[in-house]
Nucleic acid binder design. Structure first.
Lengths: 132, 132
DNA sequence: GCGTGATTACTCGGATACAAGATGTCCGAGTTTGAGCGG
DNA sequence: CCGCTCAAACTCGGACATCTTGTATCCGAGTAATCACGC
């Protein structure tokens, strides 16, 4: 029960893209170097973000990745769900007659966490970085 | 990033033990049957709870598991930590100069969840079950 | 100078490899209860 | 009836076995920009 490294890569990459926020795409190599990942692996992660509609890829020379339109409303939860999937963290597959009380508690806890991740946007971090 | 089945087993088993709450221990077989797990596997999980000090095992005939003394203050978080470990869910191992802003956000989110799990006790569920 | 083609710098997707963790199973060893048996 | 022994019913712990998932690598294919070259 831990977040995967892929999520970490995705979050850091997105932070860079939001910070750059320019029209020009940033190449995978550049993004990968600053995180010590192999470019091929990072690109595999980024395709998931593309499918989620938050970034887009530009192929060919001078290609790379850049934010798609909605740029400023991207939350942590968006990215995490794109990478980890939006399945529930806890799933009780037993068949006790009524609803599982344990599952209810776990679901509440999960929602507490998700609420925080949903209300924190990447842009906020960029501003903090700029001040420092 | 999901909770393991072992955690599910542990939570359900603890709920039974708290509900029983008697002096007599309950055998692993009985506990396992009601959850469709093999007794050997369940016992492996329960030893972790023993090491965490929340239950104790009684060996020999008519043996089994029962709560240790502190019985009524056991929280969800206690059990989860005993099974999954108390490591942080998110760990950024990069070396960016200052503290990782992303990690800070994730840690906050995690704490939101843990707070809920810490303030929910198993005894509360037992009472709910009794009412129904 | 201008079009055409080749080269180069990229991303994309699938196939594959490897490691770690989750999920069990099996077995031998220790421990307690209780039954059986002999005095 | 008492005590001793032995079998049965348990848990404990380590050593496997298997399956899934995370973490990557490699390679061929497609695509866009740029460079070279001939007219």
């Amino acid at each position: 029960m831990r977040f995967t490294k892929a999520t970490n890569y995705a979050l850091h990459t997105m932070l860079m893209l939001v910070a750059a926020s320019s029209v020009k795409p940033i190449g995978v190599q550049q993004l990968a170097e600053s995180q010590n990942v192999s470019p091929t692996y990072l690109s595999k992660i980024l395709t998931r973000l593309v499918k989620a509609g938050m970034i887009e890829s530009v192929s060919g020379a001078n290609g790379g990745y850049r934010l798609s339109r909605k740029k400023d409303d991207i939350t942590f939860l968006d990215i995490i769900h794109a990478i980890e999937g939006n399945a529930s963290l806890f799933e009780c597959d037993f068949v006790h007659g009524d609803e599982c009380l344990i599952q209810a508690v776990m679901k509440d806890a999960e929602e507490k966490m998700e609420r925080h991740l949903k209300q924190t946007k990447l842009v906020d971090l960029v501003k903090q970085q700029a001040q420092a």
